[in-house]
Amino acid sequence: MEEPEKQGICTEIVFTQFFKKNFYSLRNYLYFKFGSDNLADDIAQDAFIKLWQHCAEVRFPKSFLYRVANNASLNELAYQKVELKYRDSKPNDTTDYASPEYLMEETEFRDKFDKAIASLTQAQRTALLLNRIEGKKYREIAEMLGISQKAVEKRIHGALLSMREQIDHFR
């Protein structure tokens, strides 16, 4: 985990770079956790505000960020399970040559796939999507969540297992 110079994070340029590099990771981590855009935006933003305000004292900005966000998350007891909207809006590139049957089948699979993700536990979903969507390595996820890499792998294994069962069950 490379850290900006202690004083550096207080300068706007360094802070901006740090923000650009870490905002989405944090924000989407929170989104995967809560399934709420607004909540994720708010908590992520608040965490960055705290970092900016206390930049002079913070020695490990990234750890600080996730710690603040996790603490804030604890207070957000009122989250509800919301279906995640993570589909991209670009047209399906199989459209041009696929048969209608294939497209139907594909849509059906996608629905089951989405439902399966929504039914994962919060812990499984967060770990899995950070890896699959954010492209975070297991080690990085472990750092964000404050757990061991092995625990991350277990969660992801469990998530895939559970999804596979659901999808095949409703076949």
Binding site: E12, F15, T16, F19, K20, F23, Y24, R27, N28, Y31, D37, D41, A44, Q45, F48, I49, W52, Q53, K85, Y86, R87, D88, N92, L129, R132, I133, E134
Partner: peptide, 19 residues
Amino acid sequence: KLQSPRTADDAILAHVIAH
């Protein structure tokens, strides 16, 4: 095929730094 949800981060950054 999944994509990371993005929000307008420049506005948020500006808001953060305004503190």
